[in-house]
Every structure is written in C-alpha cells, then in structure tokens.
Amino acid sequence: MFNLDYLSISKNKDLKNVVPLVFLVAAIILHLALPNKQVFKAKSIYLTLLLLFLAAYTVILILSHRNTKIREVLTGNSPLLALFVFLFSLWDTVTLKLFLLPLPYFPAPDRVLNIFLTDWRTLGISVFHSMRLLILGYLIGASLGFVAGILLGWWKSCRYWVMPFIRIIGPVPAVTWIPIAMVVFPTSFMGSVFIIALAVWFPVTIMTFSGISSVRNSYFEVASTLGANEPFLILRVAIPAAFPSIFIGLWQATSASFISLIVAEMMGVKAGLGWYITWATSWAEYAKVYAVLIIIAIIFSNLIKLLFKLRDKVLIWQKGLIKW
C-alpha cells in the first residue's frame, strides 16, 4: 500500500514537470491557430521567445532524468512556470487575438517585447541614470542614518535634542519635499539625491537607534570587565548586536528609495526610468510603460535579493532568518 502510494507520488512528480511543456505547446498552438484581431506588423518576438523557451525547457527536462538535483529544482518550480506561461498566453489571447481590452492601454505582449528591441538605447540610458541616482542617494542616506542612529542610541542628550525633530519630520513622506528640494538645490539631480537620501535616512536612523538602545546591558557589562573602553563598546558590541535591527531599517529603506526615485524622476529629473514612464504616457505609448515596468520589477527585486545576500554574509551567526 505504502509502496504504491510512493510510486504514484513519484510519477506525479514526473508528470508535474511535463505540465509547463504542455502549456508552452498549447500557448504556441493558440498563438499560431487563432487569427489576429489587432493589427500587428512587427516581428513576432513573442513566438520566438516561446519557441526558445520550449527548446530550453525540453533540454532541462531531459537532463532532469539523469540529475536528481535538477529534477528537484524543476519539481519545485514547474507549477509556477506553468502558471507564468498560462498568464502570458492569456495576455496574448485577450489582446492580440480577441481584442477584448482597448488599445493603447492594453498592448499585446509582442508590442511590449518589441520595445526592448527598438528602444533599448533610451531604456539603457534611463536605467543608467536611475541607478546612479538611486545608489548615490541610498548610500548617502544609509550612511547618515547609520551615524545618526548610533548617536541617538548611545547618547541620551543627543536623543533629547534630536528625537522630537525626527518624530515630527520623519513620518512626512520624503517625496513631499520634492517641490522645495528642486528649488533649494542647484540641480534637479542633487535635489533628487537629497529626496532619496532623506527617504532612506529615516528608517535607517530609527532602526539603528532602536537596535542600539535595545542591546542587552549584560553584553556591555561583560565587555567592560574584559577591558573594553567606550569606542570598543560602540563599535564591537553595540553595532554588531544591533545589526539585525539595522538590516530591517536598510530593507525598509530600499522600498522608500524606490518610491522616491520614481516619483522624483517623474516630477523633477529629465532622465531615468520614472521620467521614461511619464514621457511614454504623454505620447500614449503604453507598450513602453509596460516595458519599463518589467525592467523596474527585475532591477528592484534583484537589488533586494542582493541586500539579503549581503545580510546572510554579515549575519551568519543568527539563526532563523527570514528568507527572501
């Protein structure tokens, strides 16, 4: 009985891995069989991609029969993969094939994919501008927030004088300052760096401060009976002990920085992904908007992944970490 059950499960697993393949073939047949209701004259990248994907997946599926590791990875991801293929096919069907959604707001996947081919230069420059702004703003904000958090966490008098201002200014969304920042700073680039830095500064300050001030007192006591002086207590005890909390601040800061970046570019800077969105919208080129959305999603999710990788390096000593 048990053995049979086990067999059926393992067969199910093999079957599960074939499902994406079936979906891919179905998507391709659907794309070829149904006539277009929308007019579309460019090359069909959509079909090319599906075919490439089909070929790649077939190879992986064959390899997975030999390699258990590949099989496990595949079994874990095949349902999701199938869902993605299904959603893409659905998108293709309701737009290009059936024209159920109005243009220009809902372009076919092929139109969006074509943007990457035709407009890659502008997109590339926009990515470069956005990343420069984001990284500069994030680094400045995070460093200042880190220092401020330590000062607040360690010195009572600092907390007394500065905390009220943080309580009042902190909750105001950084982007609210855009109109002022654009006037006060000589260039809109600097204004935007300031806005992003401000957005990052607040969560990093608060979480560093709360991390430092909630370090167990016995750590400091033990360290001071081991000969530690104040710099040692701050640098070698308080900061490492507070790092889990500091990381949460850095993480919250990423989403704050993403919001500020896009809004700042939409409102002030004449470059970058946010600007590209407003610009494409003003020409009603929604395919471009979707293309940028895809780029933004890929970049931002990878930046967060990078941050978590970094954390795993620094926090190997902590158990039970949240996975990303």
Binding site: E221, V237, P240, A241, Q318
Partner: peptide, 14 residues
C-alpha cells in the same frame, strides 16, 4: 576582575 554570569552572555555574533 573577570565576571561570569549564570547566562553565559556570549557575543552571539562571534
């Protein structure tokens, strides 16, 4: 004057 508590109070990051 070294000190040891009931809780070892080791630095968890080291």
């Amino acid at each position: 004057r070294g000190l040891v508590f009931q809780d070892p109070t080791l630095f968890p990051w080291l």
